[in-house]
Design a protein around this nucleic acid. Sequence first.
DNA 1: CGCATTTTTTCATATAGTGCAATGATTGAG
DNA 2: CTCAATCATTGCACTATATGAAAAAATGCG
Lengths: 211, 211
Amino acid sequence: MGLRERKKATTRRALQRAAVRLAVEHGSEHVTVDDIAAAADVSKRTFFNYFSSKEEAIVGDGPPRPDDEARAIFVARGPTGDLLDDLKIFLISPLAGSDAEDLGQRLADVHERKRLVQHEPHLAPRVMAAFADMERYVGESVAERLGEDSDDIRPQIVASLGITAMRFSMRRLHTHAASEGSAGARDDVSELRGLFDQAFDALRRTFRPAA
Amino acid sequence: MGLRERKKATTRRALQRAAVRLAVEHGSEHVTVDDIAAAADVSKRTFFNYFSSKEEAIVGDGPPRPDDEARAIFVARGPTGDLLDDLKIFLISPLAGSDAEDLGQRLADVHERKRLVQHEPHLAPRVMAAFADMERYVGESVAERLGEDSDDIRPQIVASLGITAMRFSMRRLHTHAASEGSAGARDDVSELRGLFDQAFDALRRTFRPAA
DNA sequence: CGCATTTTTTCATATAGTGCAATGATTGAG
DNA sequence: CTCAATCATTGCACTATATGAAAAAATGCG
């Protein structure tokens, strides 16, 4: 990785961190792009080279998507053959690969943004839209697996159930224990997995697999 | 209804119609608020007295919400006692009251906006957010009916299934027959009801009512 | 009609977001 | 090392969104 790319990554992180921090401190409405750029020591124009809008920098990218490999396995009826089990594995796959350090950092970011959105409801639409987009992606994957059209009702039902489980988990995350700091990174991950298991157990109970 | 309120309603409709028409004609990116205001013969500032953003005027309000009466019936386990049947009635209740004339007009608007969003994907997030908001509302109603907390998983599952049925119906509406004009108003309504029935039949087949 | 209320308009202003050309740093080839 | 190509950053100009405040116009009522 060359110096150029490293600097770009640093700048991007700096901008994003500044955006979130300032939004938490003063409320996102009272933070201008100029403020964010100044806090990250770049020009306003540079900010827009990295983010296409202020909200994008503050809210972030939404839930992480499974990669193409995980999608291929899911579409090919793998790895277990059971629809719900495989859907669960498919959805949680982005949390599988990376190391605990990085993962904990991302979950901490999720946590901070969650609080931000709760305090500022006008940010919610963007988050909701991100989930809706994810749901469309999952729906198409399910349709492909089932050999049906993505306009059919069944793939949409299955996708919405999966996304509901996901939202439930992320919503519940951190609402109980107030475990903070870097030591809680692994705890966060296992808590998220636990909630995910819990949600899918509930799905299993209310879902009748075949027609 | 006094002259004042009638005029306000007229102005609002004029602005909304102008917004949609111009967006269809030239693409929403190439339509400015000044254009819309000029087409409706009001000042730009007046536009913002009616709509808080350009997108709000173009995309509209999203799916119509059940009124408090319908919600009260649903929460009180009415009218049939069966969860899915009652959910269906609850969700479709906004289409029950008004006359066919007005209803057909609204469905025509839905149709036009649907095409608009399909051609301009950047409008999609707003629509998705509207559905997500509706889903939250339904989830809270279901939780109240079941005597559970709206943070619990079951109300969220039920709500997401209901909204999925709704989205499926609105998505499929008008994709088959190209029936246009005022004569098709009643047909549209019955087609929508048919699709809604179909979706809920599918839900019934995949849903196991009690734990 | 004449007065009170509400709506519309005019004007000023702040901020978001984009295109373009110039500048300066990073890189890789010779 | 040196030079040339590449790429990020920046400043500047400009358009559009959105809001606030006060003047001006329209409306409702006695």
